[in-house]
Design a protein around this nucleic acid. Structure first.
Lengths: 354, 354
DNA sequence: CTGAAAGCGCTTACAG
DNA sequence: CTGAAAGCGCTTACAG
């Protein structure tokens, strides 16, 4: 209705300056109703070939692209899934996202990333309503009650490596079993005094790994000293330094993740301590890097990408179920537990090069 | 209007089953207009304290959360930025996302991820209109013309490491300078026959790095043989094997990225070739891993996270400019070039341990 | 097969 | 300060 800028010489310019053509513009140019334009673009209903041609013509001429936001409002479906992760770094997250993306893009779904910088970001979760169809939440550090309080009510969700709230399915790593396998392996290799570098207190994965390590150590009758780390290389290095200096006695180290294990490994090497000759090492996660350090790191492996893909599949199932009316109280989609396995490499076995 | 399910005993249940309370529900319960509810939640206009209290009461009682989709439709602002990346893996991407997230969450913005699996996914780009406020696109492998054809018209965007289309600003790495520095460093260290493991043909970064390497080799008067790789560890390993076998003569290797450099390094070590004693190695990117392999890899460093953060900042500026009416033809936000620097480590310098 | 109209859940001039 | 109404750009029963 507003007069077109006279200096705009282009064909059938859309309404305002800089603005996109809308479905109304296309309808007007094609001389049909907006309903028909919608039908042509969604292709479910039947439309006459001539109508289709005219609409497609007009759309091409105007450079029309449907507005995803408007569409999702009227269809009550956004085509995106929210991913809520703790502060991201390292290969664990790129692997997880990679797996999620693989499955999501197969289904034509987008991924909306939200990072929780230790707690901050929680309030943005509720704001995700209407922006995503569901949520995948990984928050191993968070008090479940706090997390629960911030979850947008009624939004389908699946929890990764943290305790599920409502009937939401969860994907859990069997941390106990993995840690126990690591310690049993070290004991079988002759270790007598194992140091466990744990994850930060309050982290669920960390707690479970520690419990598994303690159980296995008790079962094998070997000593286990726990030193709290923070999942970063530095805290592993500190332990390595202590062991090299003799402050801390150990013939084996089991770290709650690979980065700490690698930190310890580097520190020991720096001080000329033979690995695994004098001190054997096992990590957890089996990030791609573990294979590349030398000696290559023995680690408890989980298929991180597969876990991401499973999370997407579970969430998709849950969204469908919700749409078809099954209420949320029913736990749709059973929980899944991922059982890790030990990747034995050079840090736990004598190699022929001294 | 539809009769509430009689078995639902909960207080003031929202309209349909499983459905969220809307702004209308809150307005009804609070006994005010929807406009007032909106004002309370947006807090720009003045509202009486008593009104505010009643609305907040009602909202809390109903568990009301504003619908982001509806909001963004009427405000023409989604609060999300689209990130378009090539198939993601490795630390480069987690670093980039980390940097983007840092800046985006500071601004209260979300990140919507779209991965281009070599070309597939391009058609989903247009569908992003109305779902994000702007786009950050990294597509070094794509024909710029093809990319241009698929870009949603009129959506603000910034290009990373690829040629900008319209007046969109771009963030470029000075690949030539970085590669030249690497080769000059090798030549200065005494290398006479350098093998360059390039990235895949058609990749812009790869082309530029190669060009920089060739120029520097010519300038230094040393021989440079180019072998095409694919940016993955395996192709670097293959070159390492050839060098170890003597099929390929080289006293230095410059790889177009770190993963290939590490592949070569591992292969050489496996065959007992001394690094850097017999063959020196330089990589590109300086991913965190480079520091951890042994000997630690000399590499051309770029601050990847900072680059991600800059992209977000540039895009934000561009979105603001577009909103305030500066037309897209004007190139808002100057291009930025990031100059890498050489991180010298053990693969190019004799260490005291033989 | 096609169109007029209502509706998705918000925001925001426009009047009071 | 507050409310009624129009509008954001789509989709989808409902009639024809």
């Amino acid at each position: 209705m507003s007069p077109a800028r006279p200096d705009s010489a282009s064909v059938a310019a859309p309404a305002a300056r800089g603005t996109h053509a809308t479905i109304h513009d296309v309808a007007r140019v094609a001389g049909v109703s907006v309903a028909s334009v919608s039908r042509v673009f969604n292709g479910r209903d039947h439309v006459r070939a001539e109508m289709r041609a005219r609409v497609e013509q007009a759309a091409a001429q105007l450079g029309y692209v449907p507005h995803a936001g408007a569409r999702s409002l009227s269809m009550a479906r956004t085509g995106a899934m929210g991913v809520v992760l703790p502060d991201l770094h390292g290969e664990f997250f790129s692997e997880l996202l990679r797996g999620m993306d693989r499955e999501a893009s197969r289904r034509g779904l987008g991924l909306l990333l939200t990072v929780l910088h230790d707690g901050r970001g929680l309030d943005t979760l509720a704001a995700l309503r209407g922006q995503v169809d569901g949520l995948m939440v990984m928050a191993p550090e968070l008090d479940p009650a706090i997390l629960a309080r911030h979850m947008p009510r009624g939004l389908a969700s699946v929890f990764l490596a943290c305790i599920p709230q409502d009937g939401s399915p969860s994907l859990r790593i069997d941390n106990r079993a993995g840690a126990a396998a690591a310690v049993a392996h070290l004991a079988a290799g002759g270790a007598k005094r194992i140091v466990h570098i744990s994850g930060p207190a309050g982290n669920l994965d960390a707690l479970e790994r520690r419990a598994g390590a303690e159980a296995a150590a008790a079962a094998a009758g070997v000593a286990l000293t726990v030193i709290e780390g923070d999942f970063h290389e530095g805290s592993g290095a500190a332990v390595g330094e202590s062991v090299a200096a003799g402050t801390l006695e150990a013939d084996a180290i089991f770290a709650a993740n690979d980065m700490m294990a690698i930190g310890a490994l580097m520190a020991l090497k720096r001080h000329g301590v033979a690995v695994p000759g004098q001190v054997a090492i096992v990590g957890f996660d089996d990030i791609p890097l573990s294979r590349l350090v030398s000696p290559a790191l023995t680690s408890v492996a989980i298929d991180i990408a597969a876990m991401g893909a499973r999370a997407v599949a579970q969430l998709a199932a849950r969204i469908t179920a919700a749409r078809e009316g099954f209420l949320e109280s029913t736990s749709t989609g059973a929980d899944e537990t991922i059982v890790p396995h030990l990747m034995v490499r050079e840090t736990t076995r004598e190699t022929d090069r001294g």
